[in-house]
Amino acid sequence: MGLRPRWSGRRLREAGALISLRCVSKRYGGVSAVEQVSLDVKASSTLCIVGPSGSGKTTLLRLIAGLEEPDAGEVWLDDQPASTEGWVLAPHKRSIGYVFQEPALWPHLTVAEHVRFGLRGPGSGSRVREVLRQTALEPLAHRYPGQLSGGEQRRAALARALAPKPRRLLMDEPLTNLDPALKAELLELIVATRAEIDATLVYVTHDALEPETLGGRVASLRGGRLEVG
């Protein structure tokens, strides 16, 4: 996406912020999805973003992940610039674990292969076993996505995102369309595993109850504009 721009060297971040957005805007055609959003998320913290459908929640996460290029503004990760108009740092260089609204599992890979996908190096085998145990997926390790139930697929997607121990976890309504019991179980799993890897969590939902379980700050997104609580 073009050459890396020369950065002005301005102090754009708050001290300790792992994710910083400054006046970020994104439009699709004539529709504004995210409008002048500024945000700091500190290391090891949790930020829940709530808002109705179409309020720009997913776009905001995609901008942080580097899956979208902002039309205006800047995204910073740690002390490093990550996105601005015309330049985006590749998503795999951002130390991000992303859980999509749909599990988005690869049909040709088993659960264990999904977990191993983001890992490299000699310790990957033991890390795979550890994550599979944490997410109670050990008995399903050799199954393909088509052989899993909806809840099992969500757990597999979570395990895949957690395995590389990312510093940032982005979750886009990961528990949509699950029954309350399964939702509660997976929420507990998210809280426990996030704490274990000490990741910064940005969690997007339209369910007002989920932030209560997750703790942390809550921000509201309406019409692409952010109101931090």
Binding site: G97, F100, G118
Partner: peptide
């Protein structure tokens, strides 16, 4: 979404391309 999941998760662009995109 399958390709985006690979892009975000893979440790390198090559792994995402070879193990997911090329297969699909």
């Amino acid at each position: 979404r399958l390709l985006e999941a690979a892009t975000v998760t893979a440790p390198s662009r090559l792994r995402a391309w070879v193990r997911v995109k090329l297969v699909l």
